[in-house]
Amino acid sequence: MHIVVCVKQIPDPSAPAALNADLRLDRSGKVLLDEADTYGVELALQVGEAHGESRVTLISMGDATDLSGLRSALAMGADAAIIVSDPALSGADSLTTAKVLAAVTNDLQPDLVIAATESSDGYTGTMPAQLAELLSLPALTFAKAVRVTASNVSIDRQTDTGYDVVTSSLPALVTVTAGAVEPRYANFKGIMAAKSKRIDVLTLTDLGLSALAGSWAQRVVSLDDAPQRQSGATLVDDGTAAQALVDYFVSIKVL
């Protein structure tokens, strides 16, 4: 089985985020593998292990100066990676990303494509559905659990009130939520092996997609501070907090 996993390299989410003068996210610092994508990588490895004779290829779009995010996913056990990196894609919207990743996926002809439900930095949450539509693949989204046979995939799909079991034939695209699987830690052997695994860096021209450069029609035009909330009284609990809370609940009429 050939499994493709979309993975994104993102700025460290625990570092304070900043925008550049052009109102795009500052991506100049170190990059990490988006934690949201570690679930997809783990799922791909598990499905591959269960089906024998399998291959896991990572695909990504973004700056390729620092490849440590992709190396982390390779260290977990993925076989190879392809990253499309082109200055003409700076600031691309999610539909453009989907078009680029669709071109890469088409060349690979996978049985299964996996992505996260939303990225930690952009969190538009639409790229995978756009990708599925461009590739005419069934999209099984928001998976809490995934079961793959040789010809079918079935997931527990998160709903507002519980979950649905949904199913389709392969090839298909699945998006996984955090917690669907437990991502493994890369061991020393994995980390060493990852150093020599293949990472192809492609440009728009390589993919025959030069026309996509700067073609998107979505622009951030301004940035303002959000209104701040004022904080009120605090009480250090000396045994009276419970009564003070009851009084407060009464004063705001919830009791």
Partner: peptide, 15 residues
């Protein structure tokens, strides 16, 4: 929204 965006070749603004 994602499927429609790709079908119509229109961007989608989220959140």
């Amino acid at each position: 929204a994602g499927h429609l965006s790709a079908r119509l070749d229109r961007p989608v603004l989220t959140n």
